[in-house]
Amino acid sequence: MVQKLRDHMWAYLFILVPVLLFLVFTLYPIISAFMMSFQRYHVLNPEWIGFDNYKTMFADSVFYKSLWNTFLFTVCTVPVNIAITFMLAYFIFQLRSKWQTFFKAVMYLPAVASGVTISLVWFAMFDPTKDGMINSFLGFFGMEPVMWLSQTSTALFSLMLMTYLGSHGAGIILYLAAMGGIPKSLYEAADIDHASGWAKFSKITWPLLKPTTLYLLVTGVIISFQVFISVYMMTQGGPDFATTTIAYLIYQTAFMFYEFGLASAQSFVLTAIIVVVSIIQFKMFATDIEY
């Protein structure tokens, strides 16, 4: 045992650094937040109140509204974005190597920009006057200017639109890598059997890309459930709670109302939802692929 430890001492030493960072900056805050969710947080005299924060949360209509908005946002963005990402990757894959590299770089560029910067650009595009970029475009077709971010009917859709027209870079790179890993022999065999293009796609390409799709689905749902920056920058949860998501509600509860206990309870409910949804996704889509 001692000999084994001595043999691997260097490995343990190097691992120690990230483990310590994980304990201090991840595990400790999670445990603290969990305890806080049962307290009326006060910087000097926190008070244990049992499940009161959870009761308050489940009695709040804004919480349910935020839950619904988050669910709607996830359902309407994740599958659509995966489809868009897949299509873009599929088209890029048909190109010659140097063009593939060019498009990979172009598509990945927005990922380098911060969410705040992207939000500001979109903010200008959603300008409510007829001079706004999107409204000017609609004006060509004789349409009236739309108050994109200020009407309950369009505000959440506007935030969804931001994801449809961006943030596909990382997914495209993953898909392209996965497509490149599919053995050519499978397609050659299919050609010998006179398989149609659709048959090759549905029987070879798509099944073999399932692990990548599952990864994008799980991470997409997790990120989508935590959508915050665009809400914070563009709408502040309004109008009339039309864009209040759980992550924004947590922020509001903690940093506007100073109710850190309640915010912690909301965070743990969000965590529970994400864990359950992720498990379901793995159960439904996970398959062992060997080729």
Binding site: M147, S150, G237, D240, M256, F257
Partner: peptide, 16 residues
């Protein structure tokens, strides 16, 4: 935060 802000936008937009 939970009444005035959301409602004032609704007032200006005419949705309420």
């Amino acid at each position: 935060e939970q009444a005035q802000k959301p409602m004032q936008q609704a007032l200006f937009s005419g949705s309420r």
